[in-house]
Simulated assay, not measured.
Amino acid sequence: MNIRILTFSLVAATFLAACSGDKQESKEKEGVETVLPSQPNEVTVMPLTKRVFNHELVSNGKITAHDYADLYFRTQEVVAHVWVKNGERVRKGQKIAELDLFKLNNALAQNKNSLAQATLEMQDVLIGQGYAPDNLNAVPADILQLAKVKSGYEQSKAQYEAAQYDLERATLVAPFDGVVANLFEKEHNMPTSGEPFCRVINTGGMEVDFTVLESELPLIKAGEKVEITPYASAAGVRRGSISEINPLVDENGMVRVKARVDGGDKLFDGMNVRVSVKRSVGEQLVVPKTAVVLRSGKQVVFTLKDGKAMWNYVHTGLENMDEYTIIDELEEGMVVITTGNVNLAHEAPVKVVENKE
């Protein structure tokens, strides 16, 4: 009885294994047919030739104002007038804001009177020493200095000049043509102590600060033209030139670069932008980016030979938005498959069609 059961079990196991093998073979066959379809893949091709390649270095940057001035009030008085607002363009010398001038005018008048009294006392000292007060050039330096000290002339003069300076600085004016920013104070209020009242930014001289890889450093130089594209698309593309390259590589292998750009009314301090540096690097073997696919993490380009796709490992060099340069493996004159190559295998049959673009 046990022998019969064992025999039956062996027969059943053999049958199940055979069925499983058939299913596995069917799946593998189905997988192969999926990768290598019976119909040839339709592809587009191009002959590989050497031509001038325009390298494009792309980076992210931030706009900063090259020229700006934070304006401060020197004295603590109530703000009497504010003539501008944030975002408003101002001309050099244009009034921006003014403090209440009553106390400042009064202080200047008092110091002016003190200076006049000190001048009279100094003249009395000189007369007592036998010198004419209206001809100070004839008075010896030590005698003149003694007269100024006794009369308090120098101290009164310094206080008068300080009061005059405070009065002049009680009215803020634009130091150059620009746009007003960070103006938050209101009339009839005391401005915040130690804080700038506002900032004037010269938008005609903006800078963009960006980074490049250490390996890309030989491809840029001072004076090179750049294109600046703000992520706020309404600002449009702006053109500038590289103004400085910081001779230091940071721990991430990056180098900081600055470029000058005319901002007009469209670029704001702190704006995020895309920076593009274009430069011709002579004749290179160039393929479209669509021609390069990845296989097991390696770059592959398929070439056409006798109606079949041939697998070629490659190393790409420089790149721009649409193309790569090829460093090795491929030779001029080969026919490169540019599209329809995503699911190709080595020696897969292909059908060449015209590029619809």
Rank of each mutant, 00 (worst) to 15 (best):
M1P: 06
N2M: 10
I3V: 14
I5A: 08
L16G: 04
G21Y: 09
D22P: 00
D22E: 08
K27Q: 09
K29T: 07
V32C: 00
V35F: 11
P40M: 07
V43Q: 02
M46D: 09
T49R: 04
K50T: 07
F53H: 06
K62L: 01
T64L: 14
L71E: 04
E77Q: 13
R91A: 14
A97N: 07
L101I: 12
N106S: 12
A109V: 06
Q110M: 13
K112P: 00
L115M: 12
L120I: 11
E121F: 11
E121M: 15
E121R: 15
P133I: 08
N137G: 03
L144S: 05
L144P: 02
A147R: 07
K148A: 05
G152M: 08
Q155G: 00
P175R: 11
A181Y: 14
N182I: 10
S193N: 10
N202W: 03
D209E: 12
L213M: 03
V226Q: 03
I228W: 03
A234V: 03
A235F: 00
G240P: 02
G240F: 05
P247R: 07
N252W: 04
R256S: 06
V257D: 06
K266W: 15
M271N: 02
V273F: 00
E283H: 08
V286R: 07
V287P: 01
K289A: 07
V292F: 02
V293H: 08
L294K: 13
L294S: 15
R295Y: 02
G297A: 12
K298G: 00
V301R: 05
F302W: 10
F302E: 10
K305H: 13
K308N: 03
M310T: 14
N312F: 01
V314H: 02
E319K: 12
I327N: 14
V336Q: 06
T338R: 06
V342H: 14
A345P: 04
H346V: 04
P349F: 08
N355C: 07
